[in-house]
Write a protein that binds this DNA or RNA. Structure first.
Lengths: 153, 153
DNA sequence: TGACAAAGTTAGGCGAAACTAACTATATTA
DNA sequence: TAATATAGTTAGTTTCGCCTAACTTTGTCA
């Protein structure tokens, strides 16, 4: 296994990791200021987190330089991002939740749901997608079901 | 509305509330020792939490006495327990997750999922239940889908 | 009824995560 | 190239949630 699962990360550190991954998607590095803005946190908090991530071998950090992810940092961040996307997709495409709420909730839930649930959710999304191709559109049927129910209230 | 939603509760306080509700379901009161055991926490932590819950008007607490919930404490706890049950039911009955894992995950996720998601999940459970009565057993089909997929791996 | 065990509390401390305010480094530009 | 604006850091503080160790209260039983 190459994917060095660096576990034992707090929800907060996972957020920093994910933020860096996203910001670095084009440029390969992330500015403290942008991380701070993205996470709604002060710059000094970013400095603190960067030091911790460095100590854990997940980020390359030198004072007054941009932050980059190490190999295992990238792997860990990618896992978190994957969880995030699966959750968001489930919320939007299966449950029919509004994008904004789906996004926000995915951010929180990605830290609390274990692999068993995540993999099953992924499976479930595939299942629904597949059956819609076979003419049985569950997501659509579900929406109708919801609408009918809401009318009765 | 009677349900005095006392929000702004930390995940931790919600856990205490839920624990007290569960322990008090028969006797109407909860011993510190039992709360501590249920939550895997020291008794002094329970004392601290009890004081906070009292200050928030959610629990009746007097040193060296059992803890009971106030009216609004009960309402808040019931809401949390409801979330918990909806989540657990979704995990077990729709996703087919093992009971233990479902239970544990529900404990964590109940603090992070907002009402929109929870209500939709409830709706979804009803939808699946209903359609299984009409001869279309989704949960079962999904299990088959999962099994087939796992075989291919 | 008095000694002892069990239950509960208090005091003090620790680590995580955030903040503000003051300082330092870097970059820009006149 | 020196002044200044922007970015980043450091120091010190706060809040939360938990812990251990020592103490107090309550309840039991010989």
């Amino acid at each position: 296994m190459v994917t060095a699962k660096s576990d034992n990360l707090s929800a907060s550190l996972e957020d920093y990791l994910e933020a860096i991954l996203n910001l670095a998607s084009k440029s390969n590095f992330a500015h403290s200021k942008d991380i701070a803005k993205l996470l709604g946190v002060s710059m000094s908090s970013v400095t603190g987190a960067s030091r911790v991530l460095k100590k854990k071998g997940l980020a390359n950090y030198k004072p007054y330089n941009c932050v980059t992810l190490t190999e295992s940092g990238r792997a860990a961040a990618a896992e978190i991002a994957r969880k995030h996307n699966i959750l968001k997709s489930f919320f939007v495409n299966v449950l029919g939740i509004e994008t904004d709420i789906a996004q926000q909730t995915a951010c929180k839930a990605e830290h609390t749901l274990g692999p068993e649930i995540i993999e099953r959710l992924l499976c479930f999304i595939e299942f629904v997608t597949q059956s819609s191709k076979n003419g049985c559109d569950w997501a659509d049927e579900f929406q109708k079901f919801c609408n009918k129910k809401n009318q009765n209230v």
